[in-house]
Amino acid sequence: MTDVDFDFLRAYLKTRSGLALTAEKRYLIESRLSPICRRFNLAGLPQLVSALRGGRDLVMEKAVVEAMTTNETFFFRDRTPFDLFKDVLLPEAIARRAAQRKLRIWCAAASTGQEPYSLAMLLQEAAPKLAGWNIDLVATDLSTEVLEKAKAGLYSHFEVQRGLPVQLLVKNFEQIGEQWRISQTLRSMVDFRPLNLLHPFETLGTFDIIYCRNVLIYFDAPTKGDVLGRLSASLSPDGALLLGAAETVIGLTDKLAPSAQHRGLYNQAAATARNTMGASAPAPLRRVVGL
C-alpha cells in the first residue's frame, strides 16, 4: 500500500467513523480490507482506494467502515462495570426515580449485544423492585451487521462461555442446535438502533445511565472531546457515564468528572462540584444499601 493510499484511507475512515489510525496500525488496513477487496471482486487495496475515491457506492463504503470497526465483546465484560450497575447504580436509580418510576439506559457501542443483554439480565434479576416501572434500554452501534446479530440474540458456545455465569445461561438461553438463543423476554427488553456517534444523537433523549465503553479509544482527542461533550448533554444532571478501563474524560472535556469512589464512572462535572462542596443539592451516586 502506498503512503498516498494509506493517507486517503486514514482520512476516509476518520470522517466516517471517527477511527484514528496511526501509522503503526497500517497492518490493520491490509488485514481487514483484503476480504472486502475479494467481496467486491477487486484485485487489491489500490483498486479499492480507486473505487472509494470515485465513490458513489454506499454499500462498499459501509462494508469498509464496518470491517475496520472492532467488535470484540463478551457478556459481563470486565465484570466491575456490571457489579457497579447491580450494587450501586441501579439501587440508587431506583431510590432517586421512585416518584417517576422511569429509568433510561443507553449502551452506546453495543456491538453484538452482549453488553445490553448483560444489563437486561441484571434488570431482570431486580424485577421485583422494578414492577410497574417504565425502563428504556437503548443499544446503538455504527454497524448494522453486528446489530442484526445482536437482535437475533444467537451466540456460539464459545460466546456464551466468556463472562456469562452458567446459572444465567441455563436460566436465560435456549439451545438451538450448536447455538444458544437469549430468551424472547430479554430480547424484547433491548431497543437496538443503528447510530454513528459522530452524528447528532440528541433525538435519543436524556439517559440516567450511559455505557460507552471501549469505543473512544479509537478516536483522536478532538473527536473524543466532542463525543464526551455531547454524551454529557444526553446525560441527566444526576446521571452516570461508564467508560472503558483505558478511557477517561480528563483533558478532553470539562463537562464530566471522574467519580471519586468508582473507577470508570463519570458524572456531570457540575453535580460532582456541588457534591464536593457539600451543597444541599441531591448528591449524585450516593451509596444506597440494597439488592
Binding site: Q161, G163, V166, Q167, V170, F173, E174
Partner: peptide, 28 residues
C-alpha cells in the same frame, strides 16, 4: 444441553465448560 448442565449444577458443580474449549473460556 440445558438438562445436562442443570444436572451438573444440581450435583454441586460450580461452573460448566462445554467442549471444545479454548484458553479464553477456561480463563473466564
Amino acid at each position: 444441553d440445558v438438562g445436562a448442565i442443570a444436572r451438573a449444577l444440581h450435583a454441586g458443580a460450580d461452573e460448566y465448560i462445554m467442549k471444545p474449549f479454548d484458553r479464553d473460556i477456561v480463563t473466564a
